[in-house]
Design a protein around this nucleic acid. Structure first.
Length: 126
DNA sequence: CGCATGACCCAGG
DNA sequence: GCCTGGGCCATGC
């Protein structure tokens, strides 16, 4: 492993989070806590990572919701409405409270093989 | 280098 | 179901 010397990975934590989120399939959603557990860091960092998400990186962040199954409000813009619209376009339905059903749309995870190939802990699914 | 800010989750009352 | 406190990483000035 010598790809972390000349690599521009200033923040491996954030880079991991981006990669994990990028593995979320369409029609499914993941919670900040789930991603944070996989990344091996606090749940906050996931939100922070997305807040620092570069605009030149079309990451499917719209599939990330909070523990309540609702879309998190952010500082600027009405992007959270656009996020809901994109999820609905993928087949996700919301109730009157704006919440989705985790028993149907919750992302089970990337899989133990993916975890091992990327250097994560596959024991998270036990 | 120190301070402030930012898209959160979990447990307890 | 709501409120409070604790935990945590990166970026900008």
């Amino acid at each position: 492993m010598t790809d972390e010397t000349t690599e521009s990975r200033k923040s491996k934590l954030h880079d991991r989070i981006y990669e994990i989120i990028d593995e979320i399939p369409a029609g499914q959603v993941a919670t900040y806590g789930q991603i944070s557990k996989i990344a091996g860091c606090g749940a906050r960092v996931v939100g922070y990572a997305l807040s620092s998400l570069p605009a030149d990186r079309p990451l499917c962040w719209h599939r990330v919701v909070n523990a309540k199954g609702e879309i998190s409000l952010r500082s600027s813009g009405d992007n959270h409405w656009k996020q809901r619209r994109m999820l609905q376009d993928e087949g996700v339905t919301f109730d009157k409270k704006g919440r989705l059903d985790f028993s149907v749309y919750r992302w089970p995870g990337p899989g133990w093989l993916w975890l091992e190939q990327h250097g994560y802990d596959p024991g998270l699914f036990e």
